[in-house]
Amino acid sequence: MALNTPQITPTKKITVRAIGEELPRGDYQRCPQCDMLFSLPEINSHQSAYCPRCQAKIRDGRDWSLTRLAAMAFTMLLLMPFAWGEPLLHIWLLGIRIDANVMQGIWQMTKQGDAITGSMVFFCVIGAPLILVTSIAYLWFGNRLGMNLRPVLLMLERLKEWVMLDIYLVGIGVASIKVQDYAHIQAGVGLFSFVALVILTTVTLSHLNVEELWERFYPQRPATRRDEKLRVCLGCHFTGYPDQRGRCPRCHIPLRLRRRHSLQKCWAALLASIVLLLPANLLPISIIYLNGGRQEDTILSGIMSLASSNIAVAGIVFIASILVPFTKVIVMFTLLLSIHFKCQQGLRTRILLLRMVTWIGRWSMLDLFVISLTMSLINRDQILAFTMGPAAFYFGAAVILTILAVEWLDSRLLWDAHESGNARFDD
Rank of each mutant, 00 (worst) to 15 (best):
Ser420His: 09
Thr204Gln: 09
Ile360Glu: 03
Phe369Asp: 06
Gly292Pro: 01
Met365Ile: 09
Thr201Pro: 05
Cys343Gly: 10
Cys34Asp: 00
Val125Arg: 00
Trp408Val: 06
Val16Arg: 11
Ser420Phe: 12
Ala268Cys: 05
Arg259Glu: 09
Ser376Cys: 04
Thr374Pro: 02
Cys343Glu: 09
Gly85Asp: 14
Arg231Cys: 05
Leu354Tyr: 07
Leu169Gln: 04
Leu337Cys: 11
Thr5Gly: 12
Leu335Cys: 10
Glu296Arg: 14
Cys233Ser: 02
Asp297Lys: 07
Leu384Cys: 03
Arg256Ala: 08
Arg216Ala: 10
Arg348Gly: 11
Arg53Gln: 14
Arg350Gln: 11
Leu413Tyr: 11
Ala70Ser: 14
Asn4Tyr: 10
Ile14Ala: 13
Leu401Ser: 06
Glu161Val: 15
Tyr182Ala: 08
Val317Asn: 00
Val163Pro: 05
Phe318Ala: 04
Thr75Asp: 15
Asp427Met: 15
Ile253Tyr: 15
Gln244Glu: 13
Leu37Gln: 09
Tyr394Arg: 02
Pro151Tyr: 02
Asp243Asn: 04
Thr298Pro: 13
Glu407Tyr: 10
Asn379Asp: 04
Val179His: 05
Val357Gln: 05
Glu419Lys: 07
Ala397Val: 03
Leu88Thr: 03
Ala307Glu: 09
Gln220Arg: 15
Gly246Asn: 05
Arg355Lys: 15
Arg260Trp: 08
Glu211Phe: 10
Ser301Pro: 09
Gln55Pro: 14
Glu21Gln: 13
His252Pro: 01
Cys124Val: 06
Gly95Ser: 09
Ala196Phe: 12
Gly361Val: 13
His46Asn: 11
Leu94Asn: 01
Ile185Val: 06
Leu336Asn: 12
Gln29Trp: 13
Leu149Ile: 06
Leu234Trp: 12
Ala391Ile: 02
Arg53Glu: 10
Arg256Met: 11
Gln264Ala: 01
Gly142Ser: 04
Asn4Asp: 10
Leu159Arg: 01
Thr134Val: 08
Pro32Tyr: 13
Phe369Leu: 03
Ile177Asn: 04
Met80Arg: 01
Met155Val: 03
Gln108Val: 11
Arg380Trp: 05
Phe393His: 10
Ile131Asn: 02
Trp84Ala: 12
Glu407Gln: 10
Lys229Leu: 08
Val195Pro: 06
Met120Leu: 04
Thr201Ala: 08
Ser338Pro: 14
Ile378Cys: 01
Met375Phe: 04
Asp166Glu: 15
Arg221Pro: 10
Gly171His: 03
Arg250Ile: 04
Phe393Ile: 12
Thr201Cys: 10
Phe74Tyr: 05
Val125Met: 14
Met80Cys: 12
Arg250Lys: 08
Thr110Ser: 14
Met72Thr: 09
Ile58Leu: 06
Gln47Thr: 07
Thr11Glu: 12
Gly113Met: 13
Phe393Thr: 04
His340Gly: 08
Phe395Leu: 14
Arg62Trp: 11
Trp214Ile: 14
Met120Pro: 01
Ser65Trp: 07
Val198Lys: 14
Arg97His: 09
Gly95Ala: 04
Arg380Thr: 02
Gly240Arg: 04
Arg258Ser: 05
Thr5Gln: 11
Arg294Thr: 03
Leu263Cys: 07
Ala397Gly: 10
Ile322Val: 12
Tyr394Met: 02
Gly361His: 05
Ile185Gly: 05
Ser48Gln: 14
Thr349Tyr: 10
Met1Leu: 02
Leu352Phe: 13
Ser411Asn: 11
Phe238Thr: 05
Met109Leu: 11
Gly20Lys: 14
Gln295Ala: 06
Thr9Asn: 13
His340Trp: 07
Gly190Arg: 05
Ser420Gly: 09
Arg250Glu: 02
Glu228Asp: 05
Glu228Pro: 08
Asp297Ser: 05
Ser338Tyr: 15
Gln345Met: 15
Pro87Glu: 06
Met103Arg: 04
Gln7Pro: 13
Cys54His: 00
Trp408Gly: 04
